[in-house]
Design a protein around this nucleic acid. Structure first.
Lengths: 338, 338
DNA sequence: CCTAGAACTGCAATCGATTGCGGCGTTTCA
DNA sequence: TGAAACGCCGCAATCGATTGCAGTTCTAGG
């Protein structure tokens, strides 16, 4: 399909050898060819509508100009901005991204990883939080270039790009404390995600610093359902006192809290204040508009791509870990404690 | 990087010729090799951890097992489900998708199209509504296999997968009419999108059928800002009477209407009822929960991938146009007319 | 006028797999 | 018993580009 015209056709029309055409059409080698010849080759190439077959080139140069991006689920709203950030850096260098979804399955991750490697991707970006049986260690052993984004490296010596989660949580806590909240709760994401642990720890230490009565409740997943289920349990429980504020592990969990509160005929922020995490798209349009921690997803993606390209270029890595600043966005889901 | 073991290595270990290894490791040709040899080759391959270099294979077989997906913007929430639908069908056949974003720019679309073709993609899925200077016609002339999704083919003889937009609009209108609305308005998306025109036409004919006083207002883009701006103009206008219900071209425009209403101290659905289109993720969590037309994005993606694979397989196309049913989801943004 | 060196460009190997062709040994059937 | 048929596998060309090497021409310096 398509691309019928090859370098040999151009060579024939220009009256030169294929090797010369190759040199003429490559930035790095075009100074090796005579000016007139170069013009003739270019003219012939344009006339024939020649476009190099990147598969053939890849075979010879051992590179595919392709980057694999492994994420849990594209429909999780934090990932599209990350992917676009990655793409923004990749595109200007002529690279393309192949995005695959694991749906949280380790088996799927392994399979997709293998398929990506088979495809000769020039590098990998891991955006799966899973630090359990992560494939990253194996990738490193196989000399595969990669970076982590939105998760720490989990002991594997790959560079990582993360948001300042701890600071985000602490800012949330300070905000709540200023509103007079004392009994606060954290909905923690699955412990297999490095971000979950970091946020939970920041919550605990933040509460200690501010003198708050903090309580951590684990959730089975980063999903609306898991958040609602966890909050339901809390509200139905007779033993634990109802918190006046909830710091959710992410916006999805916070949304689950919204649902649970509505089901229990409680208001937000009247009865319970809620803070999310990520500032996912349209978080300001929820009911109520969600107070949440904005993380720079696009930039995280862009930075991760930059670090990966540095590896590929073989240049010295400019950083092993990049922590990007976050910002608490105060909207309507937080209010004074009753 | 990686994949150091080649077919020649396997051949050496198994004591056979490379060609035999190739035949042994391919489904279609494995019956051409003796059972014992086959076992020996497989054993050697596993022992060495052999994985075929798909670049090399692609060069010879003239296929990359890659599909290009051209969309306007991944962060528009309707696209992730479409992409995942595409991927769900592609993955089981060993294909991968390369997704690129045009951001609505025709120039970008052309550039990305060329880069995809250069990458020797085996087919293309166009999800850009733009029917203006669409590249599709040229793609067809170049014998490139492709399908359209979420847009009609605009005269180019490619198969298309769309939602039943007209029915969605009419169902909205019936719902509003039943609530007693008479003066209704449609916020039309940019006319360069085929979906815009179809929805606007359905609105007009639907109003006629139901005896409603319908009015169409064009928007500059499918965005929250464009929707708000258009609605602002309507509400600020002294000449046009305020409609009691708005049928927005999509959920983003509807969200813009929400913003405009709030700015003008009007309530929804109290003062104005609003219906969106697409049922984007979390539409039910907006303020108020949005009544909208659910379109089966995942299925649309899956169907488009199926049609593309049919083309690639060279089999008879099972359909030239697939229209998937939509469903009106009634939530809280629509109420009785005052 | 001669020669070293530079500037170009052709030659051919190479990347790693696939595949048409043909050879060899064995089976089958007349 | 002979020949056709078949099963299996090796040989080598091929996909389309890149690139080290070497040859040719040209320039410049002595």
């Amino acid at each position: 399909m398509s691309s019928r015209v090859t370098i040999a056709d151009v060579a024939r029309v220009a009256g030169v050898h294929a090797g010369t055409v190759s040199r003429a059409l490559n930035q790095k080698t075009e100074n090796q060819v005579n000016h007139e010849t170069l013009a003739r080759v270019r003219q012939a190439a344009k006339q024939l509508g020649y476009a190099p077959n990147s598969i053939a080139r890849g075979l010879r140069t051992n590179s595919s100009m392709t980057i694999g991006v492994i994420i849990p689920d594209l429909t999780n709203p934090i990932f599209p901005p990350i992917v676009r950030g990655i793409d923004s850096r990749l595109a200007v260098r002529g690279y393309s991204a192949v995005v695959v979804n694991t749906d949280g399955s380790d088996d799927a991750e392994r399979l997709l990883f293998e398929s990506l490697v088979q495809r000769q991707v020039d590098g990998l970006i891991f955006a799966t939080g899973h630090s359990g049986h992560s494939i990253a260690g194996e990738a490193f052993d196989r000399d595969i270039k990669a970076v982590m984004v939105n998760r720490d490296s989990g002991g594997v010596p790959y560079p990582a790009v993360v948001g300042d989660d701890a600071e985000g949580i602490k800012a949330s806590l300070r905000h709540l404390a200023a509103l007079g909240h004392r009994r606060v709760m954290h909905l923690e994401g699955p412990p297999s995600f490095s971000t979950s642990r970091i946020r939970a720890e920041a919550f605990v230490s933040g509460c200690a610093e501010l003198g708050l009565d903090g309580h951590v409740v684990p959730c089975a997943a980063y999903s609306v359902e898991a958040g609602q289920s966890a909050m339901d349990d809390v509200l139905d429980s007779k033993v634990t006192a109802r918190p006046t504020a909830v710091v959710a592990g992410n916006d999805l969990l916070a949304l689950g809290v919204y649902h649970s509160l509505r089901l229990h005929a409680l208001t937000c922020p009247g009865d319970v204040s809620v803070v999310g995490f990520n500032d996912m798209p349209f978080a300001g349009d929820f009911q109520p508009a969600m107070t949440t921690v904005r993380t720079p997803h696009f930039e995280m993606g862009a930075e991760s791509a930059r670090l990966l390209l540095e590896q590929i270029d073989g240049s010295q890595l400019s950083a092993l870990k990049i922590t990007l600043p976050v910002e608490l966005v105060i909207r309507e889901s937080t209010g004074p404690a009753r």
